[in-house]
Design a protein around this nucleic acid. Structure first.
Lengths: 138, 138
DNA sequence: GTTTATGCAAATTCTTTGCAATACT
DNA sequence: AGTATTGCAAAGAATTTGCATAAAC
């Protein structure tokens, strides 16, 4: 699916900035912060535009937030079938390497179901694994 | 265990600020941000001191980071036996309510084990559940 | 032609750092 | 006495907002 198609499908105007930002997500298969996107685009687009674009993408379900314990927000592309689930459910775990700092979606590993005590309404589940990735272990 | 004892056990000097901050954690059984601690103490202590205290507590294993997708860092008290595990392992899930915004440790619910593909060295696991808590569901 | 996105400047919030004064052991 | 903590001021990073211009539909 082309980036143009992704925009069209989610009712987003096709602009060069949005296409370029989407391209970054498609090229790098990791969770990205605003800063990382900015660097990947070599400052061809304003910081504010990136933030606003990320928020638009979030609202329309193009990307999802990825947890991080470093204090900066990260985002990753939603899988094609993501929007079909109610409540925008992401069922895969994320792995953050403490050496290279990259957070990757591990699509092969599903988040196990958990059973909460009575009374909780569960809407979203996130699981973040941290350690060292295969590349950094050498 | 008194807050003074917690400090003594972790080789931290006992000061009124540290005791007061620990008291906030003990009183509220939820994950707290710097801002929330500041408000709970009604500005009796400088912002910077809170940040530095949180970092000291983190290093000594008094508290642990709690993931959050709002972009602010949150912290929660470690269980008494936390320091006995290597790598400071926290095995319970966290629940964040989207109505009241509170993140609580659900000690009764263990994080299920996951199996990663070959090559990953797993060091830390975090699981954040989001939805509505029993209090807010009414 | 109307609506929405963009860039710039500026404001806000979160977090860290430097340094002199103070408190702890 | 010696070392660690505190408060203040200030710096730095992340994120948001206002407004006029430009681009998409």
């Amino acid at each position: 699916m082309t980036t143009e198609n992704i925009l069209r499908r989610h009712d987003l105007r096709r602009t060069s900035n949005r296409t370029a930002i989407l391209d970054v997500f498609v090229a790098q298969e990791v969770a990205l912060s605003e800063r990382e996107i900015e660097e990947a685009m070599s400052q061809t687009c304003d910081r504010v535009t990136i933030y606003r674009t990320l928020n638009s993408f979030l609202e329309r379900g193009v990307i999802h937030r990825v947890l991080d314990d470093s204090g900066v927000m990260k985002y990753a592309l939603c899988a094609a079938d993501c929007a079909h689930h109610e409540a925008h459910y992401h069922d895969h775990v994320h792995f953050k390497c403490r050496m290279c700092g990259q957070t990757t979606c591990i699509e092969q590993v599903q988040i196990p179901k958990v059973i909460l005590p009575e009374g909780f309404a569960l809407e979203e589940v996130n699981m973040l694994l941290q350690g060292v990735c295969p590349e950094c272990r050498g």
